[in-house]
Amino acid sequence: MAKTLTQEFTKGLWAEIPPFRLVLGLCPILAVTKSVENAIGMGAAVVFVLVGSNVLVSLLRKIIPSKVRIACFIIVVATFVTVVELLMQAYTYPLFLKLGIFIPLIVVNCIPLGRAEAFAYKNGIIPSFADGLGLGIGYAMSLTALGAIREVFGSGTFYGNQVFGPSFQPFNFMIEAPGAFVCLGLMLCVMNFVGKKA
């Protein structure tokens, strides 16, 4: 165990930040980052699922036989996702209407499953918790940053508030899926540039 807990946590924020470095979970990235509000909601759901599934998989790692481990991971992840879905319907229904199908689709987005396989199955509970939290927050931050850029340029608002004057012409391209791709690419480019210098 060379890495400290802090390192497990902070690697998710930069070195292994999910959509950019691991290039995982791109489907919701393209779909839900039209606005900051959606992005934060989705990010929070992913943090919950990732932390929950990482801790539970790590807790059960001694008793899960390796031949059926993927099936077990899927059950664990699916359970947490359904919990999030039900809670969102019960308490934040308008947000649920906007995120729609992308909440249940967290199950098939590779981050929780990937972390369960690559990390939680081999490590203790506390490092797994740190890993899940770090990657989850990293994912949420990326969604929010992308959502902010797309919302500001695409609809001229930030978290639903107008930022430019009424004369602003929305740059519709940013709201559509190709805009998200281009934006993601540019952000990755900037990150590589900054990363190389440091």
Binding site: A71, C72, I75, A78, T79, V83, L86, L87, A90
Partner: peptide, 25 residues
Amino acid sequence: IVLTVLCSFSGGLLAALRNETMEKI
């Protein structure tokens, strides 16, 4: 055994939660 126990636990938990939140939803 592991798969059965895990599945039934998960099913039970979700059913309970669903009951809890049904009215609210």
